[in-house]
Design a binder for these strands. Structure first.
Length: 621
RNA sequence: GGAGGCGUGGUGUAGCUGGCCUAACAUACGUGCCUGUCACGCACGAGAUCGCGGGUUCAAAUCCCGUCGCCUCCGCCA
């Protein structure tokens, strides 16, 4: 029964359609109610979070996506609603009509945002009953993640999960508004497209009308967005679904969303300004947080040298130091032979860790080895001036003090050293740095440290088939000062060429990645030669794009954000699964739907496919 | 492809150096009582062949092998 008398609330969050069902009109959401509404008649619809039956008095915590409010039923005031409330159980879907009243002074609940008021029920209608759910819908503790996935619709009913979905909505809306206000058009591109041999493994879609041929699900809209630049779209963006058939991680799903952006007649400085503005807008609109601009920039070479990572977490120090010069003349064989074989010796200083136990040191050494280091040497600068180390006797006093000077180590500190090839030494120390930073509590919470990493290597060595390939993609421009090196056959020269590519890093997470593209055919041909791609191969793989470039391609550049990671960081979540409504498991399955699953032989027949599986697996149903 | 962690009533955990385990605790669930609870309380009750398969043993939740599922990391992710 809808209230017809008294002051009626209008729905605060919706200006057009007010929810209603069979004559009942919802007046507001549970979480919106506060003392301002005292005296109002309200109609609420939602789920029973909990019913507390005190005999002659029953409380119901009613929950919807905004929060909870306490409903009271008194057998004298409304015998009928009292009778219904008696039988109501958790997760029943009900409609409550009643009056908002201020709670008596000693019955207020300061732990609830609606705890100053409650709703005296005049009428309760049960829309639906519920089986006892497989887990209780509450914030903590979380049930096993497999169970959450299996019953994701119940997991999402938990308010922290609804908050995450809301946050994601607000973030994407803010992105769309910002880019639109800056002259960008959102253009959709195909998800079913042409398989490209470079890059990640493709998800394939067989063609029924062209049996034997396959589409690939787009790994990104890369080629299409460059075509749109040739088309004169000028400023493009898209919230694009992308698909990559690679193994999963906490921050990687096989299908994910990119904020894909491309601009004509632009360059790094202009694009960075645009993106920094977008981040500022996002943080302000969605989190209410001001972030400092401009973001610092660091070349890839500098990031590797100082942090041993191309996505450094700069929320704390403990940087890597080069101590090669200090130990160049060392009698210690490990240092000597490393330096002779053109390696390097690097160190970090862990503050106040001189007393670290053997077990902790072993664990750090194990981590360093996992990333290729031959070992991890430690020097404990003990209070009093003594230095304790397994290699103490191999090092001179000058070396000991030189290392302290180079790393800034003081008495009570621990210096950790890796000797080896540059990338091995710094990445191993980079990992040790991160794990120590975490263990020592050096990483501040609630801080957002953005950082641009620029000038990545243009090429990288594929160890499997010993050839050079594009580190970003084959259309990435080299930096102007290195263009003349493109013709070189020398591997060491090739490894030194830097690209006009960049990443945006936030708190040690790669948020976005992009580059200035090659728009001149001549330079592109040079690039293909460098990649050992013949004209024919390039033609077969990207012919349509190269052809497009013959008809007047503007200079252009772009960037793509991992939306899931962005929202994850904004939500303070530990994995992107927390901000994806229906995520996949680590084995890329969906526990809710059971996908992937077998298909009928008729479906295969239509597609001209037959299965050939080993290991006695059943072919189809 | 590789390494590790976890798997015990519906849920979250304890037990896991083999035996008083006829598996404990909390919570959820059912019934009853209770007019100010909000983690309501109290009483009673039901609920588990300890992921699955095999082995060792007089005896296995516990040890061993295999397997499945979930998670984390390496490889992989232009």
């Amino acid at each position: 029964m809808a209230p017809t008398e008294g002051e009626k609330l209008t729905n605060a969050t919706s200006t057009v359609a007010i929810s209603g069902y069979e004559g009942q009109e919802r007046t507001c959401y549970c979480g919106e109610l506060d003392e301002k509404h005292v005296g109002s008649e309200v109609v609420l619809m939602g789920w029973v979070n909990r019913q507390r039956d005190l005999g002659e008095l029953i409380f119901i915590d009613l929950r919807d996506r905004t929060g909870m409010v306490q409903v009271v039923t008194d057998h004298k005031r409304s015998p009928e609603s009292f009778r219904i409330a008696k039988k109501v159980r958790s997760e029943y879907v009900i409609c409550v009509s009643g009056t908002v009243v201020k709670r008596a002074p000693d019955t207020e609940n300061p732990n609830s945002s609606t705890g100053m008021i409650e709703v005296m029920a005049d009428d309760i209608k049960v829309f639906n009953r519920s089986k006892t759910p497989p887990f209780v819908i509450r914030d903590e503790p979380e049930p096993d993640e497999g169970l959450r996935m299996r019953y994701r619709y119940l997991d999402l009913r938990r308010l922290p999960m609804l908050r995450n979905l809301e946050l994601r909505h607000k973030a994407t809306l803010a992105v769309r508004n910002y880019l639109s206000q800056n002259g960008f058009w959102e253009v959709e591109t195909p998800t079913m497209t042409k398989s490209t041999p470079e890059g990640a493994r493709d998800y394939l879609v067989p063609s029924r009308l062209d049996p034997g041929n396959f589409f690939a699900l787009a790994q990104s809209p890369q080629l299409f967005k460059q075509l749109l630049m040739v088309s004169g779209v000028d400023k493009y963006f898209q919230l694009a679904r992308c698909y990559r058939d690679e193994d999963l991680r906490a921050d990687r799903q096989p299908e994910f969303t990119q904020i894909d952006i491309e601009v004509s007649f632009s360059d790094e400085d202009r694009l960075f300004g645009l993106i920094e503005g977008m981040m500022k807008h996002l943080w302000k609109e969605v989190l209410g947080v001001e972030i400092a601009q401009p973001f610092p920039r660091m070349t890839w070479d500098e990031a590797m040298a100082r942090y041993g990572s191309d996505k450094p977490d700069i929320r704390f120090g403990m940087e890597i130091h080069d101590i090669t010069g200090v130990v160049r003349e060392s009698g210690f064989m490990v240092f000597k032979s490393t330096i002779e074989s053109k390696g390097t010796v690097r160190a970090i200083c862990a503050p106040e860790c001189a007393g670290m136990s053997r077990q902790e040191l072993d664990s750090l050494a194990a981590q360093a080895k996992e990333f290729g280091a031959a070992g991890l040497i430690h020097l404990a600068y003990l209070p009093g001036g003594e230095v304790k180390s397994p290699v103490r006797k191999h090092l001179s006093d000058e070396e000991i003090s030189g290392i302290a000077h180079a790393t800034g180590a003081k008495e009570g500190d621990l210096v950790l050293i890796v000797a080896g090839p540059f990338e091995v030494a710094v990445t191993a120390l980079g990992r040790v740095r991160l794990s120590l930073g975490d263990e020592l509590g050096l990483i501040p919470e609630g801080k957002y440290e953005f950082l641009w990493i620029t000038e990545f290597p243009l090429l990288e060595r594929n160890e499997e088939d010993a050839r050079w390939q594009a580190a970003h993609h084959p259309f990435t421009s080299p930096v102007t000062r290195h263009v003349h090196l493109l013709g070189s056959d020398d591997d060491s020269v090739k490894s030194q060429i830097r690209a006009r590519s960049y990443d945006l890093v936030l708190n040690g997470v790669e948020l976005a990645s992009g580059s200035v593209r090659i728009h001149e055919r001549k330079l592109q041909d040079k690039m293909f030669r460098l990649l050992n791609l013949s004209v024919e191969e390039a033609e077969e793989k990207f012919g349509f794009l190269l052809e497009a470039f013959e008809y007047g391609a503007p200079p252009h550049c772009g960037i793509a954000f991992g939306l899931d990671r962005l929202v994850m960081l904004m939500a303070g979540a530990g994995t992107i699964r927390e901000v994806i409504a229906f995520p996949k498991t680590a084995k890329a399955t969906c526990l809710l739907t059971g996908a992937p699953s077998q298909v009928s032989s008729e479906q295969l027949e239509d597609l001209g496919l037959s299965l050939k599986l080993n290991k006695e697996r059943k072919t189809c149903k």
